[in-house]
Amino acid sequence: MAGARRYRTAYLFLAPAVLVMLAVVLYPFIYNVAISFSNMSLYHLRDPQFIGLAHYKTIFLETEIWGIFGKTILWTAINVVSHLTLGIGLALLLNQEVRGRAWFRALLILPWAMPQYITALTWKGMFNYEYGAVNLLLKAVHLPAVPWLSNETWAFIAPIIANVWLGFPFMMVVALGALQSIPKEMYEAAQLDGANWWYQFRRITLPMLKPVLGPAAVLGTIWTFNNLNVIWLVTNQGEPADKTHILVTYVYKAAFHYYRYGYAAAFSIVIFLILLSFVVYYMRIQKEEV
């Protein structure tokens, strides 16, 4: 009670933000949960009926969805690992005293500065079988052209390449910031102790990057897991034959191509729960370490 009075001004200042959050986050969320138990679709827009867990049952029984789930995990893992590796690698290079460092840094951040939408469409063009830049390059070095967007496997690799391109600058910027905050005495002390570059990287750099890159990787995982744009645009809505979907593009298609609102709502709840359990798991690990 005393606290409430003491912090009254603080609460007052927070109130508008809280109200807006309630309106734009909590309300739609609850609404989403509600329609996930209904048969709301184009044909039942104004008269949705309660159908219980029917959509959830469909989701778990549909074998196709387990394949998409596996693909989503693969997509997320490959992307996040590549983002981290490339990001840390380039940050290490940029952290050296090289001439024109500022210039390189600006250049490398560029993919991130471009709107995702435009980058994705550009990559789509570059993956064109006959006239795309990628195959022209392959041709120039006498490699066979790759059916990037028509073969199921390649059409999955293509958006991964595009998204790696889009995602590494963020990790690079984060890693660079973290690297620059590591005092150079730590490396000097290690050098005197006889540690070579690799040992220093493993025992000092990586552990020192962890507190910053850990949360960045979690964020990256969530973004990638839910990255609609890149797959949707590069593969032209899941082509070939809806074989390149991840969960979120599949949901998007169900909701906005087929107007299966109830089903899509239930599906997004499932995705939400997957990500929620991932974050809870991460936070638990984090707590144990401290």
């Binding site: 005092p183 002390a189 005197l192 006889g194 020192m208």
Partner: peptide
């Protein structure tokens, strides 16, 4: 440096924040 057989104590101590005292000494 590693072949000169010397040890240095830095003004900032240069301790590794992620390692225990034991591991810092044992580095």
């Amino acid at each position: 440096p590693r072949d000169r057989d010397i040890a240095m104590v830095f003004q900032s101590y240069a301790l590794y924040p992620h390692l225990t005292v034991f591991e810092n000494i044992a580095f």
